[in-house]
């Protein structure tokens, strides 16, 4: 009897799990596997094995530049996102007038599709955009600043598009922080700066880190922003796209090898990050 119910229960469990498993294998595992196989096939063929695609990319004179640019953009924009998010969160936590609208505004960059955002950014920061109009008309600058298609511009666009993740988690961690800790520090003699440095920042660090990893991962894999606004700056995702979007016939195997390298870098980074997070903190 119990044996029978046990089997029955197992079956039910399996049936309930199956949509999830199907999704996991169909949408994640299978494409990854196909990409892996593709990266090991000679270009344009469906049989045979080769490491040539990896060798070709790794020995490409552009390879180092691409990897460096990808990391530079991801790390710089993550770092700037943190610098932007912490003061913003400290400000919004005090619930100033209009803080609700501001909270919504933070979400705009992740809700707007990358393509639309990118076009908007080009218009705003262009030599005839509002930013330069402000500089010329209000601050009386002689010539417009060139932002679009520069590295600085690209970093600004990355920050705009990906800082939300960091800002949201930082804000929610900060709002979950018991104000008694700060009061205790104040009464004990700490200046507002010391409270921030010794109490608030260390206590919200896990929130900052978990948000910034999202910003980093998204920035590392950014595609539409650098594709449209990058000009000559092509990070890994754009370089991959070039293999299938420009060459005829498309170089699927080369693209796949690059994608595998990209995935490997991300996994390595994640493991490294998890190590940091798991360090005993609070």
């Amino acid at each position: 009897m119990s044996h029978f119910t046990n089997k029955r229960q197992n079956l039910i469990t399996f049936l309930l799990l199956s949509p999830g498993l199907a999704g996991f294998f169909g949408l994640f595992f299978y494409p990854m596997l196909v990409t892996l196989f593709r990266s090991l096939r000679p270009e344009g063929q469906t049989s045979g094995w080769t490491l040539g695609n990896y060798a070709a990319f790794l020995s490409d004179p552009d390879f180092r530049g691409i990897i460096w640019l990808t990391f530079f953009l991801a790390i710089t924009s993550t770092f700037l996102s943190i610098l932007l998010s912490v003061p913003l969160a400290l400000l919004l936590r005090r619930k100033p007038v209009g803080h609700r609208l501001f909270r919504l505004t933070i979400l705009v960059p992740i809700t707007v599709p990358g393509l639309i955002g990118a076009l908007g950014l080009l218009l705003f920061w262009g030599s005839r955009g509002w930013f330069n109009l402000l500089l010329l008309q209000v601050f009386r600058l002689k010539a417009p600043l060139t932002i679009n298609y520069t590295l600085t511009g690209l970093v600004i666009f990355y920050v705009w598009h990906y800082f939300s993740y960091t800002a949201i988690t930082t804000l929610s961690t900060l709002e979950g922080l018991d104000p008694a800790f700060e009061e205790a520090a104040r009464v004990a003699g700490a200046t507002p700066w010391q409270v921030l440095r010794y109490i608030v920042i260390p206590l919200i660090m896990p929130g900052i880190l978990s948000g910034s990893v999202l910003t980093f991962m998204a920035a590392f894999g950014a595609f539409s922003i650098p594709l449209i606004t990058g000009g000559n700056y092509r990070p890994l995702s754009v370089a991959i796209y070039k293999q299938i979007g420009i060459f005829i016939p498309a170089r699927w195997s080369a693209a796949s090898a690059m994608a595998m390298i990209m995935a490997a870098l991300q996994v390595v980074f994640l493991i490294f990050y998890m190590r940091i997070l798991r360090r005993p903190m609070a």
Binding site: A184, V187, G189
Partner: peptide, 19 residues
């Protein structure tokens, strides 16, 4: 300001710094 008042205070929820 609070930090210059030279006070000692004990809190209801202890408020020990967890880190």
């Amino acid at each position: 300001p609070t930090h210059k008042r030279e006070l000692g205070m004990v809190f209801q929820n202890f408020a020990l710094f967890p880190h």
